[in-house]
């Protein structure tokens, strides 16, 4: 049945019947607790991804790799990151594969990607909470493309550790949009720091954002944060 499904995948496209390929996603769920079955399925999916199948078929493969992909999938998926037609779905899998090789692939791609696709990779790095990416993201905070810099700020906010906060604090964005993103990310970092018991560093963030030079919305957020710190340390 699985052989037939992979055969059907060769002709799968928008508008074709989904049923013939469904055994592939069924096999992914059924492979739970069976490393050999997962490995075998992943190998077949990667072979399909490298073959001449439709965009929709490759999208389908990436969806299934989200569940069964491993370190072995990273080099194949990473080759798609620079392809505008496949970059997102490559990330669809890479972002959710816990292997460190998947994180490496996203980080390594950053300098090679055009702005729009770079924003996607930055977003996936942030969603993974990849603490190893702080240095690379810090360098992007002052990127000439404000959308890239804004994305880097948001990603650092998702990582949320002390190093990410320090990177954000050191940034000097000229664009108002990026400034706003940096402040939002710093507030997110402060929340993460407070959640793990680092009230001192969280309070330092809030103190630095509570001044009159900040917009009212930010001052109020910082004041709420200071109260939360006080409650945590009381």
């Amino acid at each position: 049945m699985l052989d037939n499904a992979f055969e059907a995948l060769k002709k799968y496209d928008w508008g074709t019947d989904r049923a013939p390929v469904t055994p592939i996603s069924d096999a992914a769920a059924a492979a739970h607790g069976n490393p050999e079955a997962r490995k075998d399925l992943e190998s077949r999916l990667l072979a399909a991804l490298k073959s001449d199948i439709s965009r929709d078929a490759k999208d389908y493969v990436c969806r299934v790799l989200t569940l069964v992909g491993s370190a072995a999938a990273a080099p194949v998926l990473s080759k798609l990151l620079a392809d505008e037609n496949h970059s997102h779905m490559a990330r669809f899998a890479l972002e959710r594969i816990p292997a460190p090789e998947a994180a490496d692939a996203l980080r390594d791609a950053l300098p090679k990607l055009p702005a729009k696709l770079k924003i996607g990779a930055i977003s996936s790095i942030g969603n993974r909470g990849d603490a190893h990416a702080v240095s690379a993201l810090k360098g992007l905070l002052e990127d000439g493309d404000a959308a890239v810099a804004r994305a880097a700020a948001a990603a650092l906010g998702h990582i949320g550790n002390a190093a990410a906060e320090q990177a954000l604090r050191a940034a000097h964005p000229s664009s108002g949009v990026v400034q706003q993103a940096v402040i939002d990310a710093r507030l997110a970092c402060a929340e993460s720091l407070l959640a793990v018991g680092n009230a001192g560093e969280a309070l330092a963030v809030y103190d630095s954002l509570a001044g009159d030079q900040q917009p009212r919305l930010v001052r109020l957020a910082a004041t709420r944060g200071k109260l939360a710190c006080a409650a945590k340390t009381a």
Partner: peptide
């Protein structure tokens, strides 16, 4: 199961 907690968003959109 943790892989299904979220999904990658199409560029340029992010949370």
């Amino acid at each position: 199961a943790n892989r299904l907690v979220d999904r990658a968003r199409r560029e340029p959109w992010q949370l």
